[in-house]
Design a protein around this nucleic acid. Structure first.
Lengths: 195, 195
DNA sequence: CAACATACGGAACAATGTTCCGGTTTGCAA
DNA sequence: TTGCAAACCGGAACATTGTTCCGTATGTTG
């Protein structure tokens, strides 16, 4: 039987083209604005870059967290996929864990203010926090479990704890060149090892 | 030679009594407001508690950092004095270091938002950061050096790095009861040890 | 007690987040 | 193709908070 509604993707009465175009423009504008001014850039700035009104932002992305999540979704998914790959390619689970954490740190420190936003208790960032946890915790847990099972690390630290610690240690790493977050994260991982 | 200006403390032509009274009231009001709403409590709230206008706050404490520093000065100084005492009383330098860090953590997590403020790159908090570093770094360095000299820990981590890491790990510890900052800080210290 | 310096209070201004509504555009169906 | 209801748009308007400024009140001194 022929497809009733042309060859478009989803059901749902098809979004208006202007809405789709604006959403696209907003994602691009937000990405640029985040790089230029951090994830706390004023809403008005993003709207101006995208050439839309502030109302349009709130309509497409009710909270700042939604916008941030949308902008960085690709990279988060890449981290999700990197987990199993590292586990397969590395010579030990602990090495894989270390490498994965390194990717995670790269991600956090290159997005100005992301680490801060993730740890913030601001209700507006709750969904962002939830998104990161939902996607990344299982991956981190897998790496952690593998290393624990191999007897390389203690097994009394949860994935959430570790991610939280790493996230916290990344705060401010992009502002202060004197601060070497990786060094401290290395210490944290060293503290995890069994001897 | 006799003291020219009565038996008061400082030089400087003696402040007006209302000014001194307001400063006192502000310190008390700020301390209460910090406990109730964190160190980010709106300036107006503090002014209202103290029964003064906002202008009075800015006159006595030009930046929020000045006010915070004044409110917590006593406790910071207590931490400064605790360092040598712990070193003398503990059975090993590493134990002393651990205990001192514990005091430091206590201090940070009980002051809502203090850890965040300390790591913030906001220019308004620069002097607060500087005050903490000036007073506490030498103490931490002394403990760190003693432990390193005793061969208990590696010697390639500076006092500033450690304090920064501990401070970062304390962020959010007062909000989220699931998050156990001390556990991660324990890991960090474990990573410091030599075997 | 008078004159002066200092401090006070809060209105006014600025930056930013958030809501709301009149006007416009678009998708759909007759 | 044309008409229309629904969806969407832009930005004015409002709320919150930090910061400055100045006319007024108060303490201090001679």
């Amino acid at each position: 039987m022929a497809d009733i509604g042309s060859r478009s993707e989803t059901r749902a009465p098809r979004k208006r083209v202007d809405a789709r175009r604006n959403e696209e423009a907003l994602l691009e504008a937000a990405a640029a604005a985040f790089i230029a001014s951090g994830v706390d850039v004023p809403v008005r700035d993003i709207a101006a870059r995208a050439g839309v009104g502030v109302g349009t932002i709130y309509r497409h992305f009710p909270t700042r967290a939604d916008l941030i999540a949308a902008v960085y979704r690709h990279q988060v998914e890449a981290s999700v996929e990197a987990g199993p790959a590292l586990l397969a390619d590395s010579d030990s689970p602990f090495t894989a864990l270390t490498r994965w954490i390194d990717l995670f740190v790269d991600f956090l420190v290159t997005k100005h203010g992301l680490a801060e936003a993730l740890q913030s208790d601001d209700a507006a960032f709750a969904t962002l926090h939830a998104y990161f946890v939902d996607r990344l915790r299982p991956v981190c847990a897998e790496l952690l479990d593998a290393a624990a099972e191999a007897g390389q690390i203690r097994s009394d630290i949860g994935a959430l704890d570790l991610m939280r610690g790493v996230g916290n240690l990344c705060i401010g790493a992009d502002k202060d060149p004197e601060y070497d977050a990786r060094r401290l994260i290395g210490l944290l991982l060293a503290g995890l090892r069994l001897h």
